[in-house]
């Protein structure tokens, strides 16, 4: 089987502003692929192209060998947006149930998935609470649960651990690893370096371009440094 996510020579501009410039990358099935880059570098824009919310100005995006955008493909993509997008006047359970009912799932499976996803992010005890009474971290976790609700093949997580305490962050990463074991492909964006260490492959993004990519180990060896942070600075420096 070929790559789960394949991006070829993708550029994106808003008006005159070029936000992504000739980006190519491919994510193999069962991989955790990290996009790391400073604020405003274009990570979210790239993620939205992968999900199919927007079309690239140039280039091609394929997910599971299907050209994006494609409606049926969305059944297989779990998307966690950078900003929590939840119905705050509903309870967590109602949020999960609503999103579950938008996918092709039987009633029984819907119930199971809601229970599974809530348990995964430790929200089982708070399901009956309205989301407006949630803390920031709880909302983040609920967003992750929503992304997992339809048991998708590909997960696209835009800064999944922002606002989550270290302990829970650990457990979320443990779960991401476990999802990987079940054969899921995961693309995460982050600007936290220690999370980047946990990825199988990394692409460092700056000003809409991939400045370097490879496994964390390869990157460190290539630049002869032990910390990714320094790799990032060095790669960015070379580019300039």
């Amino acid at each position: 089987m070929s790559a789960s996510i394949s991006i070829k020579n993708v550029s994106k501009s808003f008006g005159k502003k070029v936000v992504l410039n000739n980006i190519s990358l491919s994510v193999e099935p069962g991989q955790i692929y990290g996009l790391i880059g400073p604020s405003g570098s274009g990570k979210t824009t790239l993620v939205k192209l992968i999900v199919g919310m927007d079309r690239p100005s140039e280039g091609l995006v394929h997910v599971l060998d299907t050209p994006v955008p494609n409606l049926n493909l969305l059944q297989e993509i779990g998307y966690m947006a950078q900003a929590d997008a939840l119905y705050t006047d509903l309870t967590a359970e109602e949020n999960l149930a609503f999103f579950a009912s938008l996918f092709k799932l039987s009633k029984k499976v819907q119930k199971e998935r809601i229970a599974y996803a809530a348990d995964l992010v430790n929200l089982t005890d708070h399901l009956k609470k309205r989301v407006q009474d949630y803390s920031g971290g709880m909302k983040r976790r609920l967003s992750l649960a929503v992304a997992l609700i339809q048991d998708p093949q590909v997960l696209v997580l835009d800064e999944p651990t922002v606002g989550i305490d270290p302990e829970l962050r650990q457990s979320i990463w443990a779960e991401i690893q476990r999802l990987k074991m079940t054969g899921k492909t995961i693309l995460v964006t982050t600007h936290v370096m220690d999370e980047a260490e946990k990825c199988d492959r990394l692409a460092m993004v700056r000003d809409g371009e991939i400045i370097t990519s490879g496994s964390p180990q390869e990157l460190k060896e290539h630049y002869g440094i032990t910390s990714l942070e320094e790799v990032f600075l060095k790669a960015g420096g070379e580019k300039k």
Partner: peptide
């Protein structure tokens, strides 16, 4: 404005 429309459009809904 709350972004839920975007989120909704990331599901296979027409």
């Amino acid at each position: 404005t709350t972004g839920t429309l975007d989120r909704l459009l990331a599901t296979p809904i027409q």
